[in-house]
Design a protein around this nucleic acid. Structure first.
Length: 169
DNA sequence: CCCTGATTCGC
DNA sequence: GCGAATCAGG
């Protein structure tokens, strides 16, 4: 993998959008390991891992299969996992900073649905550009009914796991 | 079996 | 630095 600045940008963007490593890998044409490895090296914010490797018990020879004599100089105790982080158990993958648009009236209203601008004002909330930068904005297309994105971005957002293609983005 | 991310370590 | 192999959990 040629980790050009743009490739890294893409990785960061997809990572920030909450895509799985394998998915990012698929979209970028590399293995998920490449993504995980690179993300790790870039010190990107780790997303909730299904496993937890505490200090307890490492009877395993270690990641790779080989028989190097263990010359353990630094035990390096870890403080265990921390940050619960944001759960990404949403029904659909959402781009990073979704809200922030059309704050309108967030005052507690009788109708709970009214509290969410996304439901009433049907504008696509697909983020364009790098969040935090001046050029960053949201797609202003009309969102599909019941969806937070316009038709174009909904097609990108709601890709099914096994029906994915390298394009779409 | 499918998936997920983390880690190790030869290259 | 890279990423396959492997681990470990759902």
């Amino acid at each position: 993998m040629d980790w050009s600045a743009e490739a890294i940008e893409t990785l960061k963007a997809l990572w920030a959008e909450g895509h799985s490593t394998a998915e990012i890998g698929r979209r970028m044409g590399v293995s998920k390991n490449a993504i995980v490895g690179k993300a790790h090296r870039l010190a990107l914010p780790a997303r909730p891992s299904p496993i937890r490797r505490d200090g307890v018990s490492q009877p395993i020879t270690s990641g790779r299969a080989l028989f190097t004599p263990p010359a353990q100089p630094a035990p390096q105790a870890r403080p265990a996992a921390s940050e619960p982080v944001a759960p990404r158990a949403m029904a659909a993958p959402r781009p990073a900073a979704a809200p922030a648009r059309a704050p309108v009236a967030v005052a507690p209203q009788p109708s709970s649905l009214r509290a969410f601008p996304r439901v009433s004002s049907r504008t696509c909330c697909w983020p364009i550009g790098e969040p935090g930068t001046s050029g960053f904005h949201f797609c202003d297309g009309g969102a599909l009914t019941g969806k937070p994105y316009c038709a174009e971005h909904a097609a990108v957002a709601y890709v099914r796991a096994r029906d994915r293609r390298e394009d779409a983005a």
